[in-house]
């Protein structure tokens, strides 16, 4: 990093080095249960992060600690390089955790006004954010009359009021119907497109896979993996193949050195790779052997398959 300091202009350094949140050896015990165990990771500006883990793996507890509502048992965390206190930092953060919590007897607009007062910001953006989540027409309805999907969208509008440096979402689609899930994901994608740093906690793998570039995988409060989503497991992927003569295809593939194993289901043959092999090379090889393919797709394991591999590996 010191090299960067000397060679890059000051305004660029800031962008590169901006750490929004760093967590060091964080722990939380509930009696004997270790909800979070020695967790460390860093959130840098401009990426979309996912915290992935099954229910009860410590996602919400971790977020609760950094959001100042759960007391930690050990370790440290710091917002924005520790330059400001946690509650000052939280004014620059937008967060929704678990269920949307608002005053049921107040209208959507008034609830957001209260949030503006707490964050000490101007009230001019309320309508803009309500528009973004599609609640502008219902702004004068009381919160208690909202459906869960609308409540969740209001929570997102509230979290965006201050144009936050980072948006934290804990299970934002939990309990919603498919339409609601779709709306929320659209909104998240829209926000991510604007360059906002996002931290998304979820047990839904496809959610993380669709939105996030980086992932922290938790299991029983322990960190299993931190890094880019596509580097989570070094895998060479697999081919899905079809041919009119499936048996010949299988025999031919068994002789190929790079193919690890073969699985046939109905008329589809799946060939797992031991090493890197491009679709073009495979096609050429099979053609030379006199086999023509009717179907050729190269795929990588989905995050779900990788995730299960990762969490099962350490299952005792």
């Amino acid at each position: 990093m010191t090299v960067y300091r000397r060679t890059i202009k000051p305004q660029n350094i800031k962008f590169i080095l901006d750490t929004i949140l760093s967590i060091n050896n964080l722990s939380k015990n509930y009696g004997k249960l270790k909800a979070v165990n020695n967790l460390s990771f860093t959130i840098n500006k401009g990426h979309v992060y996912g915290i992935l883990g099954p229910n009860g793996s410590g996602k919400s507890t971790t977020l609760g600690i950094v959001l100042n509502v759960v007391n930690k048992s050990g370790g440290t965390y710091s917002w924005f390089d520790g330059t400001i206190t946690t509650h000052e930092a939280l004014k620059k953060v937008g967060a929704i955790i678990e269920r949307p919590n608002f005053y049921p007897y107040m209208s959507a607009y008034k609830n957001l006004r209260l949030v503006c007062k707490i964050k000490n910001i101007d009230e001019s953006k309320i309508n803009e954010k309500l528009e973004l989540v599609g609640l502008l027409e219902r702004k004068d309805s009381k919160f208690k009359t909202f459906s869960l999907g609308m409540k969740q969208r209001l929570a997102i509008a509230s979290a965006l009021l201050n144009d936050p440096e980072i948006l934290i979402l804990d299970e934002p689609t939990n309990g919603l119907d498919p339409q609601g899930i779709h709306q929320i994901r659209d909104i998240i994608r829209k926000i991510a497109g604007l360059g906002t740093t996002i931290l998304l906690a979820s047990h839904l793998l496809d959610e993380v896979e669709k939105v996030c570039s980086h992932v922290v995988v938790l299991r029983k409060g322990e960190n299993l993996y931190t890094g880019r989503v596509d580097e989570m497991i070094s895998t060479n992927g697999f081919f899905e193949l079809k041919s009119e003569n499936l048996e010949a295809l299988a025999q031919c593939l068994e002789q190929h050195q790079v193919i690890k194993n073969i699985k046939i289901t109905d008329d589809l043959l799946t060939a797992y790779l031991e090493d890197e092999l491009s679709a073009k090379d495979l096609n050429e090889f099979l053609f030379q052997q006199g086999i023509t393919l009717t179907h050729l797709v190269k795929r990588k394991e989905s995050l779900e398959e990788q995730f299960l591999q990762l969490t099962n590996k350490t299952d005792h």
Binding site: L67, L90, A95
Partner: peptide
């Protein structure tokens, strides 16, 4: 909880 998260 929400008040504290909002920065109070």
């Amino acid at each position: 909880k929400q008040n504290l998260i909002d920065g109070l």
